[in-house]
């Protein structure tokens, strides 16, 4: 499948090589700070991994970057467009796959993609063509007319991703795209994302599967407790070691088997 690619028009005042630029994002929920001043530059055309332990603030950060959650402070800029000053323009450029969010799952897969496309203001012919292409690419053609509520977890992720792609965004923000996805579907998704990046798109994914990020991404940032601990190309961040070891070192976990001696039968 070929996704339409756009020439990148440089916008004034912002680094033109950044597809997503976060500056000093802060968010707290009822006195608990979830994100504490996150700044991040995601270069255009990069495959960017955002890694961190559970509760590190990944989802909160990505929600603020996509216009789903209003930050307490800081700015998010997508390809030169401020997400919170001109949300409609920024959202046209962005495709979003939120994590742990429901879908309109009483629609069939085909209807859901069509719905997403029409919501973005595409015309009927374009939507129909793209829906067909996307169903094909994600290997969902046979299930296009089943209700999404009856899909498996992997199919659900794929149809959500398809719905996020239908308006041909230039930046893809994917929160845990590989969570509870079987290896075959995961390979399918990885292939489509790699294609997308090759054709000039930018992808930012959050994950806590280090191995996957190391293999798939070219850039990575490590988040913990609402802060960026390290950021750069994957080689820079892992500094000779594996990403997983480097991550544990940065975040500061402890050994896996402490204190469970009673479990050793």
């Amino acid at each position: 499948m070929t996704l339409p690619s756009y020439p990148v028009a440089p916008a004034s005042g912002y680094p033109t090589d950044s597809a997503l630029s976060l500056r000093g994002l802060v968010k707290s929920f009822g006195g608990k700070t979830a994100v504490n001043g996150i700044s991040l530059e995601v270069p255009t055309g990069s495959f960017f991994g955002l890694v961190g332990p559970n509760g590190a603030g990944k989802t909160t950060t990505l929600s603020m970057a996509t216009g789903l959650l209003r930050p307490d402070d800081g700015t998010a800029v997508v390809l030169g467009v401020d997400v919170w000053k001109d949300p409609l323009a920024a959202k046209r450029l962005t495709g979003v796959l939120p994590d742990g969010v429901r879908l309109f799952d009483r629609l069939s897969g085909e209807q859901l993609i069509t719905y997403a496309g029409l919501l973005h203001g595409l015309d009927r012919q374009t939507v129909a063509g793209r829906a067909r292409d996307l169903l094909e690419a994600f290997d969902l053609t046979a299930d296009a007319r089943s209700l999404v509520v009856d899909y498996s977890a992997g199919m659900t992720k794929k149809i959500a991703l398809a719905a996020a792609l239908v308006h041909a965004p230039r930046l893809l923000v994917l929160d845990e795209p590989f969570e509870s996805v079987d290896p075959v579907s995961a390979a399918n998704i990885r292939g489509i994302l790699a294609d997308y990046v090759r054709s000039g798109g930018t992808v930012i994914v959050s994950s806590h599967v280090m191995d996957l990020v190391q293999r798939m991404c070219d850039h990575v940032a490590v988040v913990a407790q609402g802060r960026i601990l390290a950021s750069g190309t994957v080689d820079e961040v892992r500094a000779g070691s594996t990403l997983e070891d480097r991550f544990v070192e940065l975040v500061g976990g402890h050994g896996p088997t402490e204190g469970l001696s009673w479990l050793h039968t």
């Binding site: 996509t66 216009g67 789903l68 949300p87 409609l88 920024a90 959202k91 046209r92 962005t94 979003v96 939120p98 742990g100 969010v101 429901r102 879908l103 309109f104 799952d105 719905y115 997403a116 919501l119 973005h120 719905a163 996020a164 308006h167």
Partner: peptide, 15 residues
């Protein structure tokens, strides 16, 4: 009734 599926409207920038 939409629950969090409403995120689709929000992220699609529906007016």
């Amino acid at each position: 009734y939409d629950s969090t599926a409403f995120s689709l409207h929000l992220s699609a920038g529906v007016r």
